[in-house]
Each structure stands twice: as C-alpha cells, then as structure tokens.
Design a protein around this nucleic acid. Structure first.
Lengths: 212, 212
DNA sequence: CTTACAATACTGACGAGTCGGTTTTGAGCA
DNA sequence: TGCTCAAAACCGACTCGTCAGTATTGTAAG
C-alpha cells in the first residue's frame, strides 16, 4: 500500500492546487492541505521542500503541461502558420476549460516568482507563438508588424475571458471568437482593406520616449 | 508640518502601492510600509482599517481612476464607435505607461476580493467597452458576433503586454498594435468599411506624454 | 525488524494590530 | 503677537495569535 510515491505526490499536488486556486497564498494553511489530502503534515515535507516550493512546483508543472501540448500540436510537418495559430488558441482554451484550477493558479503566479526557470518557460511559450506568426509573415500568409506584441497578447486573451467571463460561455464559442480576433489582426487582408493603420508614420511619431 | 491629512493618506497609499506591486501580499510588511513612508506604524491605522483594507483601497482607487478617464473620453457627442474603441485602447495604454505601479497592482487584484464593489466596477468597465462595440455593430461600422467576449479581451491585451513585454516598448507602438488587433477583429470587412475609418485623420497619437 | 506513513504535539519566528505616551494644530482669549 | 489648552494626529515598542516547519509516537504492511 505504501511504496510508490508518485501517486501520493500527485494527490498532494492536486489538493494544494485546489486550495491555492481558491484563496491567496497566505490564507492557505499546510495543515489544511494535509488534512484534505488525507495525509500527515510531515508527509508534505517528504515531497516538497517548503510551502513556496510546493506552490512553485504546481505552477511550473501546470505551465509545462500546456507548453508540451502546444509543442506537440505544432511539431512535425510544415503546418501553415494560420493553422498553427488556430491550434495554439484552441489548445489554450481547451486547457483552460479542462483545468480551471490550474489555469486560475497560473494567474495568481504573477511574474514575481524569483526563479529563473519560470521566466525561461514563459519566454519559450511566447517564443513559440511569435515564431509561428513570423513564419506566416515570411510566407506571405500574415502581415503583422509586431509579432512579439501579438504573441504576448494571446495568453492574455484567454486569461481574461476565463477569469472574468460569465459562467455560461462554452469552449467552442470562446475558441471561435478568440481565433477570429487574432486571425483578423494578423492576416494579410485584401490589400486595400488594411492599407491604412498608420504604418508609415509610426516610427517618426514614436520619437517622444514612451514611458518609464 | 502637515495639517491636511489627505496628503499623508496619499503618501502612504503611494508607498504601499509600490511595495505591493513589487512583492506578493504576504511578503509586504506594514512595518516596511510605515518605514518607507516615513510614518509611524500606528498612523497607518488612522487611515486604513487593516492591511487588507489598505490593499483593497489601493486597487479600487486605481481602477476608479481608469474608469473615470475612460468615461470622460467617451462622453459627449456621438463619437463613432471606431474612434471610441481607439480612445479606449490608447487611454488604457497611457494609464499603464504612466502608472506602471498601479497597473501592476491591479494585476494582483484577481484574488477573490470579497467586496462586491470590485466586481461592480469591473462590470461597469467591460460594459463600457461592450456597449461601444455594440454601437458599432448597430451602425454597421462593426460586425462582431460576440461583443462581450471581445470586451473582456481588451484589458487583457494591455495587461499582457505591460506585464511580460520587453522593457524597450514605447507607448505609441503598443497602442498602435493593440488598436490594430482589436480594430481588425471587430470591423466589418470590405473595403468601404475600412476606408471610412481612415478618412478622418488619425488622432494625435504623438500628444507628448513624457514618461515622467 | 524495518519502512513508510498518519497523527499529533511542539517550537520559534514573525508580523498584524494595539495602546499609552508625545507632538502638532488651531481656536479662544488677552 | 503671544499664551493656553483640548483635541486630534502621530509614533513605535509591545502583545499575542498564528502557522511553517520539526520531532515524536503509534501502527500497519511487508
């Protein structure tokens, strides 16, 4: 009955994730985690170094899961950029719907995590999206002047909707709408349609130092 | 030295905002807030009921500021929906650049704030955007099947870019790109619709706005 | 008899909130 | 202008509950 640890680690992780998603870090007591997981408090410390370690691990793990799924979606043959973008979006939304707890958890996470690995993962993530857009630009499929900014936006869209959206929203609707938004923003339209958007002037105007 | 208390309240608030933006709630010590504000700890409790109260007040206040500015931008005559949307975006970005601290602070805010006022404000906010989009739909300017979802996305876009974007980004570029994304996602396709938007020359984006 | 763990008792630090003493303010008065 | 005094603002050392983390004990399985 008591040999394999991975099962128990997962149990603890799931319980903790649930609690951390429900209330802020400082309100989650490890006593509660232990109790709800049906585990001794001491056991927690067999699997995790500290409360912060546990918390970090949860987020890192969840994020890694998303990342791996995305990579799997995009690997292989030459998927057209548009298709790639669509897959990214639906994969993200799917994950958010399937694991609301983990998604909510990542929200809390904020960038204030000292660990460098977190930032690395994050960069890897947006890099994936950015590269897809650039690929589309090169192939002529897209025409996005700022793939980096757009890439940053993608997870933000999903986050906002999941976080503040009304409860009734269904996955398909959300996916469709987000895809629509991003796609339109990025695709090369009938040339005249997007002719404008002030592109020519931008550089000159931006002269006046942004902020900070 | 100081007679009017509002000055001091603002000082405390600003200091606290800085600290709360820098580290998570549970790592901010009121002793530090007091020290950095050059104020006795007891004084904090003259102006704020508790740590949570202080925190909540900061966020609520910041959010209210944005909301008021937006309202001011949109009130008055019949601004075309497209122009309204553009104003919303640039106002948000401007605020984010001007008050990075407050903006970052609002990020943290998701945390299950018990107070109903917070949810109200939030609804008021997205409602403003949603209504603008609907107006555009009615006038034929836009053609967005899900104004509500789109409205939810807007603040998310700004957030993502400000939060994870590289430091170098300047306000004008960010504004332009976000406007482009949303606009394209929302406008009725077809050359004539597009053209109308452009006719009135772009609003003065370069309106100064120095960082400091 | 050993291993892995639940249960639980324990402790030490930490930090929110308090309280009594001190300073500032401004009104009333000369 | 100067003095008095009460009320309000202010300070910061102290208190006291709360947990994170640890050590101990009992027990079931192998």
């Amino acid at each position: 009955m008591q040999r394999p640890d991975e099962k128990k680690r997962a149990l603890i992780a799931a319980t903790a994730a649930r609690l951390f998603a429900t209330r802020p870090f400082h309100k989650v007591k490890l006593d509660d985690v232990a109790a709800e997981a049906g585990v001794g408090k001491g056991t927690l410390y067999i699997y995790f170094k500290s409360k912060e370690d546990l918390y970090f691990w949860l987020i890192y793990d969840a994020f890694t899961q998303v990342l791996e799924r995305l990579k799997r979606q995009l690997e292989g043959e030459q998927i057209p950029a548009g298709e790639g973008l669509r897959r990214i979006l639906s994969e993200l939304v799917k994950f958010a719907f399937d694991h609301p707890t983990l998604y909510e958890l990542m929200r809390t996470a904020g960038p204030i995590i000292p660990d460098e690995r977190w930032a690395d993962r994050r960069r890897e993530f947006t890099g994936l999206i950015e590269r897809t857009i650039r690929r589309g630009n090169v192939s002529g499929e897209f025409d996005d002047p700022h793939p980096q900014i757009t890439a940053l936006c993608v997870p933000g869209l999903v986050r906002s909707v999941m976080l503040f959206g009304p409860k009734g929203l269904d996955e398909a609707t959300v996916t469709a709408q987000l895809i629509r938004l991003i796609e339109r923003g990025v695709y090369r339209n009938g040339k005249k349609a997007m002719k404008r958007t002030r592109t020519p002037k931008r550089t000159a105007l931006a002269s006046g130092r942004g902020g900070r």
